[in-house]
């Protein structure tokens, strides 16, 4: 896997940066928030894990190209893991999903199509393709929007942030 500069100069990333804390971000502050998010989503959607089949225990790296860190996800209901990891300490993973912030947000907001993002080269996957396909299908079978559920966890400020991001995403598409 090639090294990725923290902030490639794309429009998507420029827009996303407007909403994101500037680095360096103390990752230890982020970890409990990520843990809360993944626990909540898992408890709201227990059936989604069935679609992962043998890939429940796979390790995924989600590389949001505008962030100075990567996200490490292991969607195993018995041993859930969702944490931020410095790029310099990226762990070995089964698969990596790489894309711009607004594009990846669109996927968990039920607003973007993964195949279309792949065709346009805005989304890159490497590693175990079958594990990624299972994860994609599991997330897509969640009714409503995962992004909305996360925003709701943070009350009015969370919802306001999501609305602003959706507007930015709509501007990008138009």
């Amino acid at each position: 896997m090639e090294p990725v500069t923290p902030y490639p100069p794309t429009d998507d990333n420029a827009r996303a940066r407007t909403f994101l804390p500037a680095p360096p971000l103390p990752l230890f502050l982020l970890q409990p928030v990520l843990r809360r998010i993944v626990t909540r989503i898992a408890s709201q959607n227990p059936d989604m894990f069935n679609r992962l089949g043998p890939h429940k225990s796979a390790n995924f790296i989600i590389d949001v190209t505008s962030l100075p860190f990567v996200l490490h996800l292991r969607p195993d209901p018995e041993d859930l893991l969702f944490r931020a990891v410095a790029r310099s300490r990226k762990p070995e993973a089964d698969a990596e999903i790489r894309g711009g912030f607004l594009d990846l947000l669109g996927l968990v907001d039920g607003d973007a199509d993964g195949d279309a993002l792949f065709f346009s080269r805005d989304l890159t996957i490497t590693g175990n393709t079958e594990a990624v396909v299972c994860l994609r299908n599991a997330l897509d079978d969640v009714d409503g929007s995962i992004a909305q559920s996360v925003a709701d966890m943070f009350g009015p400020p969370g919802r306001a942030m999501l609305s602003a991001l959706r507007r930015a995403s709509a501007r990008k598409k138009s």
Binding site: E2, T124, I125, T126, T129, E130, V132
Partner: peptide, 12 residues
């Protein structure tokens, strides 16, 4: 094209 047989490689 079973996904288990598909591999994407991205170069530098």
């Amino acid at each position: 094209s079973p996904a288990a047989d598909v591999e994407y490689r991205r170069d530098e």
